[in-house]
Amino acid sequence: MKVEDVKTLAALIGAVGSDHLGRALDAALKPTLDFDMSCIYLFRFNHNAVLIHDGYHGSVPQSTLAAYLRGGYLLDPFYVACTHDHPAGVWRMSELAPDSFFSSGFAISRDIHPCVSSHHGALIEEVGLIIPVAPRVAVVYSLMRGAPGGTFQPHEMDALKTLAPIVNSLLELHCRLRHSDCYAAPDSPDMQSEDAFVEILQGQLTETQRYIAKLILQGHSNGSIARVLGISEGTVKVHKHNIYQRLEISTNTELYRLFINYLTRAA
């Protein structure tokens, strides 16, 4: 092992349990992988997201970050993956996102999606290391690259996968030291929708309708919702019609706007 590698590893170990771990990880990865921004979030089902590291370099408005932390994270494919016990590893956002995600209100909204807000909708890719720490709880270390830099190439993904075991161990230990409460017993595995959706959707929907509204907001098409629930697309359309009636709206766009307005007004 090279002297510089030893120094880097020592700096990483020394940063565990402190507010400097994210910056130390960024510095360690930069020589291997070029990225524009980074962030580390702790995601736990039915609990607010925790921002462990802000590597947005001041390019994300505080109002956007506040709205994301208040509830925007509920639509983030990485949050959804973590709270469904997705396997650990290095994943592209595109590998986790539902079929209509990239045309969804969240994906294109500068009000609640930090990546869009920070680069005017031009961020071409986000990759994340998912580190499960407990049932329905995981840490995600995300790296983002803007359009001028192109996509993360296979050799870069391979390099990140090679370094992943070290990053995983450091962040898991960090959580044990700084976020021990995340190891508490998880909420009921039967819960389909987080309490936040009840409040955001004004408590006007049945449990099934709330779950379908959640899937719409997260970027699922009618066909995808039908597959998730094991029902026909026709039944999905009936549920959507009833949801729209109860919320006094008529389109998915209005549903997104209702969600975004709640978050930005509350933020």
Rank of each mutant, 00 (worst) to 15 (best):
K2G: 06
V3K: 12
T8P: 08
A10N: 09
L12Q: 07
I13F: 09
G14M: 04
D19L: 07
G22C: 04
D26Y: 04
D26W: 04
A28D: 04
T32L: 14
D34Q: 11
D34L: 13
D34E: 10
M37T: 14
Y41M: 09
Y41D: 10
R44M: 03
R44Y: 02
N46M: 06
N46I: 06
V50D: 06
L51A: 01
S59R: 15
S59W: 04
S63Y: 04
L65K: 05
A66P: 00
A67E: 00
R70H: 08
V80Q: 03
A81H: 05
T83A: 03
H86Y: 15
A88K: 12
G89Q: 08
G89A: 13
V90N: 09
R92A: 14
E95Q: 11
L96K: 00
L96G: 01
S103M: 11
S103N: 10
S103E: 07
S104M: 12
H113Y: 12
H113P: 00
P114C: 10
V116R: 05
H119P: 00
H120V: 02
H120T: 05
A122R: 08
L123I: 13
E125R: 11
I131A: 07
A134S: 14
V139R: 00
V140H: 05
L143M: 13
M144K: 06
G149H: 07
F152T: 06
P154R: 03
H155V: 01
M157C: 06
D158F: 01
A159I: 02
K161V: 00
K161D: 12
K161Q: 13
I166R: 02
V167F: 14
N168R: 10
S169L: 10
L170N: 12
L171K: 04
E172S: 12
E172N: 08
L173V: 13
H174R: 00
L177W: 12
R178I: 05
D181E: 09
D181F: 07
Y183P: 05
Y183K: 02
P186T: 04
M191K: 07
A196K: 11
F197K: 03
V198T: 11
E199K: 10
E199I: 11
L201T: 01
L201S: 03
Q202L: 09
Q202H: 09
Q202E: 14
G203F: 12
L205W: 03
T206M: 07
E207W: 06
T208C: 01
L215Y: 15
L217W: 13
S221A: 07
N222F: 01
G223C: 06
R227W: 00
V228A: 05
G230I: 04
E233W: 02
T235I: 03
V238C: 03
K240T: 15
K240W: 08
H241D: 10
I243S: 02
R246K: 14
L247E: 14
L247D: 14
E248V: 09
E248K: 13
N252G: 13
N252T: 10
T253M: 04
E254D: 06
L255Q: 10
L255F: 08
Y256N: 15
Y256A: 03
Y256Q: 08
R257F: 01
R257A: 10
F259N: 06
I260Y: 07
R265E: 10
R265V: 02
A267Q: 00
A267L: 05
